[in-house]
Computed example of a mutant assay.
Amino acid sequence: MIMRILGEGQYDIADTHLDKLNELDAVLQSAAVSGDEQAFASGLRALLDAVRALGTPLPADTLAPSDLILPDEDTSLHEVQALLADEGLIPG
């Protein structure tokens, strides 16, 4: 699966890592729903750090469609609340 972090780039994520990313996404979604700014910022940072650590960065000149687009760390709680679906940022 190809995930893009806005303003940063794309990462190829093996399917074996999706459960871990979904756990982090659930924490982020819970913080966003409750409006907890501190937990939200921490959860978003943890999710993006995991994508960076578990994924393989694609070269900048690679033009591949992204399966998922994640906000960058500077995205506000209110912006992410507007993006959240019932399954969070990462479906599954």
Rank of each mutant, 00 (worst) to 15 (best):
A31R: 03
P91R: 14
T75M: 07
L83N: 03
H17L: 06
G9W: 01
D86M: 13
A60Y: 05
A26L: 13
T56E: 15
Q29N: 09
D61W: 08
D61V: 12
H78K: 10
E8G: 01
L68V: 08
P59Y: 08
D25N: 15
Q38K: 13
P65A: 14
I90D: 06
Y11A: 02
E79W: 07
E8M: 02
F40P: 00
L84M: 11
A64Y: 10
D15R: 11
L24D: 05
I2L: 10
L48K: 07
G88M: 08
I2K: 03
I2V: 12
D12W: 10
V80Y: 02
D25K: 03
I69V: 13
N22P: 00
L68D: 07
S30H: 15
L21G: 01
P91T: 08
A46V: 01
G43K: 06
V33P: 00
D12G: 10
G55Y: 08
P65N: 06
S76N: 10
L6S: 11
A14I: 02
S30T: 15
R52Y: 04
L70Q: 03
A26T: 14
L58D: 01
A85V: 09
A50R: 06
A41E: 12
V27A: 12
A46N: 15
G9D: 02
P91A: 13
G43C: 04
D72M: 03
D86G: 15
D25F: 06
P71A: 12
L48H: 03
E8D: 03
I5Y: 00
Y11Q: 05
A82Q: 14
M1A: 14
M3L: 15
A14Q: 14
D72T: 01
G55N: 05
D49W: 08
K20C: 07
D19T: 11
L63G: 01
P65R: 11
G88T: 06
A39H: 13
D25S: 09
G35R: 10
M1S: 12
L58A: 02
L47F: 07
R45T: 08
D12C: 06
Q81V: 11
L68G: 00
A46P: 06
Q81S: 15
Y11F: 13
A53T: 13
P65M: 09
A64H: 05
L47G: 00
H78V: 03
L68T: 02
A53M: 11
L83V: 03
G55I: 09
R45K: 13
T16P: 00
L84C: 10
E8I: 01
Q10R: 06
D61L: 13
